[in-house]
Computed example of a mutant assay.
Amino acid sequence: MADFEYLIVYHIIKYRRKVVNKNISTAFPNKSKKEIKYIEKGFYRWFADYFFEAVKLLSISDSELRKRFKTVNSEEVEKCFEEGQDVATILGHYCNWEWLSCVGIDLPKSRIMGLVYHPLRNSAFDNLFKQIRSSQPNGVTVPKKDILRFLINYRRNGTRSIFGYISDQGPKWENIHLWLPFLNHPETPVFTGAERIMKKMNNAVFYVEMSRPKRGYYTATYKLITKDPNSLPEHEITKRFFGMLEETINKEPRYYLWTHKRWKRTREEFNRRFQVVNGKVIAKNDHED
């Protein structure tokens, strides 16, 4: 079914092909047209797999899941729990991020495993993906606006938790507080909200690197960023995350989500239209009023 979807999406509908080609070409300017086309087609083949793999989580057996999804360094996460520290993981739209709802597969069932998400506009798809992301035992999904309240409640109840933050989306103008070099773009606007929560909760922070050994199989590797987030300078966790994500993408670019217009907001336009006043981004016209 995914192979058929690929033919429809890539060759007939040509879903966002111009956006994808531009993103890949600007991210890898030294690659030949043949190499760019290889990445582009490989991305669409994986993208077709993504939806069917995600939906399969609703019915996959535990034995089949353990065959197809492996975790590395889970013992480091459990050690943090045993030492009384909750865990935050930071990750990107790489490989099938829906399968990251399974990262607690090798942890004790008493641990809460959750994903922070932004509700989708389409209620049917929103409900579907909430079911997918909470399909594993002790799996929960929490809207980003509610996450701090949930974390505080878990801590008060003595429940150890690990939550994943997908943090490579393009923020809206009013949420831009940091620009970083990323994938050959010297200034990419990035979110910093996840880092603020991690510091407030004093979480141990891990980057989760996803890889795809072969079709339908994934490996999630925990890589420690810090156990003492408040010892790091402001935005350092975010900077380290984007550096690690870029290394992952460079290893195998086909499995990154290239369909988003990630670089549509520029620093020049931001400086022309907005300014930062007391840490808040406001439109210049509003400030003048």
Rank of each mutant, 00 (worst) to 15 (best):
V142L: 10
V142E: 08
P143Q: 03
P143W: 09
D146K: 07
D146A: 13
I147Q: 12
L148W: 13
L148D: 11
R149Y: 10
F150G: 06
L151E: 08
L151Q: 08
L151N: 07
I152W: 07
I152V: 04
I152N: 09
N153M: 14
N153P: 00
R155W: 02
R156E: 14
N157F: 06
G158T: 13
G158V: 12
T159I: 15
R160S: 00
S161H: 10
I162V: 15
I162L: 14
I162G: 15
F163K: 02
F163S: 05
G164A: 04
G164S: 06
G164Q: 05
Y165G: 12
Y165V: 09
D168C: 13
D168A: 08
Q169S: 04
Q169V: 14
Q169C: 03
P171S: 12
P171Q: 14
P171V: 15
W173R: 10
N175F: 01
N175Q: 15
I176E: 08
I176K: 02
L178C: 01
L180G: 00
P181M: 07
P181A: 09
F182Y: 01
F182P: 09
L183D: 11
N184A: 01
N184Q: 11
T188E: 05
T188C: 03
T188P: 00
V190Q: 01
T192F: 06
T192G: 00
T192I: 13
G193P: 05
G193S: 15
A194L: 03
A194I: 12
A194Y: 12
A194P: 08
E195L: 04
E195D: 01
M198F: 09
M198Q: 12
K199G: 03
K199P: 04
K200Y: 02
K200P: 05
K200I: 01
M201Q: 15
N202W: 06
N203R: 10
N203E: 14
N203I: 00
A204F: 14
F206A: 00
Y207I: 02
Y207V: 06
V208C: 14
E209N: 14
M210F: 13
R212C: 01
P213V: 09
K214V: 05
R215S: 03
G216D: 07
Y218N: 02
Y218I: 10
Y218K: 05
T219R: 10
A220H: 11
A220K: 08
T221E: 13
T221H: 11
K223V: 13
I225Q: 02
D228C: 12
P229I: 11
N230C: 04
